[in-house]
């Protein structure tokens, strides 16, 4: 367990607060009726770009694909002046070295999934080795998955210990804990898993692997943001949030930002504390930015392939 947490009283996870599902849905629906226009939309979209973890997590990934993506991470769209870079690229451990080399000394970080992503069905030693390998290869951030099977059968201590062990293996790398909310069934479970992850040492909590539907719904993200808020109020420690999977339009991304601002405040509106895990979101945002600049609706034909 990291030093910052040694004084914190760990609660009994059987008694985490339950979630008012109807209330969450209403709150989210209200946020989604908001319309963000003009200059604030442009600022918001640039912020979105800067918060993206450009992701490729496929069995068919090749060094070429990863290099191409790393180039894109640094040069999103040459035709748009002052375009920010994305926050990080997210790859499998075997691709970390390639990504690290391709990114050179740019500010773009390399995140690596680990712990037998995406299922997490492997012994703990394997998961720790997986994590250590990724860190040795140069990963700045580790995206681990929790053992959903253990969680659902009530073995919260197992899940907690596992996260703590991986946190230790991470060393200096920041740890994002993927809850895979699509498999957790209820919002109550999402809240519980969020708390377990935060108390066990997560630097970030993340909704999904992107391999399971539904992924990052607004409802789930809202519940996790509220968990972060409560944790912050209790301990004074800021935890990051990363919705991943299913956020492919700039409108949805802006609504997410709005939700972050209204639940956690402006301190979280920074890519150190908030990220989008996405592959096709960047192009949609770029197309919107170009639309604002030229006044003409854009075509995917003129933007780089994901």
């Amino acid at each position: 367990m990291s030093t910052k947490q040694k004084d914190i009283q760990i609660p009994d996870f059987r008694f985490t607060p339950t979630i008012d599902k109807v209330g969450v849905e209403e709150r989210v629906a209200r946020i989604q009726t908001r319309s963000i226009k003009g200059e604030s939309k442009i600022q918001g979209m640039k912020m979105v770009l800067n918060m993206i973890d450009l992701t490729t997590l496929e069995g068919k990934d090749t060094p070429g694909k990863v290099k191409q993506m790393c180039y894109k991470a640094q040069h999103l769209h040459e035709a748009y002046p002052d375009c920010p870079t994305v926050a990080a690229v997210c790859v499998y451990p075997s691709m970390v070295k390639i990504a690290k080399e391709a990114l050179g000394n740019s500010n773009v970080k390399v995140a690596s999934v680990s712990t037998a992503f995406p299922s997490g069905q492997a012994p703990r030693e394997v998961k720790i080795m997986d994590t250590k390998f990724a860190v040795e290869q140069g990963a700045d951030e580790i995206d681990m998955v929790i053992s959903r099977g253990k969680f659902l059968s009530g073995e919260y201590n197992f899940v907690f210990d596992e996260i703590a062990a991986i946190k230790e293996a991470c060393g200096k790398a920041r740890l994002k804990v993927i809850l895979e909310t699509g498999e957790l069934v209820t919002l109550d479970n999402v809240r519980k898993a969020s708390e377990i992850a935060m108390y066990a040492g997560a630097d970030f909590i993340k909704t999904s692997t992107g391999k399971i539907q539904p992924a990052a719904t607004m409802q789930v993200t809202y519940v996790m943001l509220m968990a972060i808020k409560d944790y912050f109020n209790k301990t004074g420690i800021m935890i990051g949030m990363k919705p991943a999977g299913g956020i492919s339009t700039s409108k949805l991304a802006l609504h997410n930002l709005l939700m972050v601002k209204e639940t956690l405040g402006e301190n979280w509106l920074d890519n150190h504390w908030f990220r989008f895990g996405a592959s096709s979101l960047a192009n949609d945002v770029l197309m919107q930015l170009m639309k604002s600049k030229t006044g003409v609706y854009q075509s995917g034909d003129y933007f780089s392939l994901d």
Partner: peptide, 8 residues
């Protein structure tokens, strides 16, 4: 105008 200018 939109029919004419839409890039897609």
């Amino acid at each position: 105008e939109q029919f004419g200018s839409h890039m897609d």
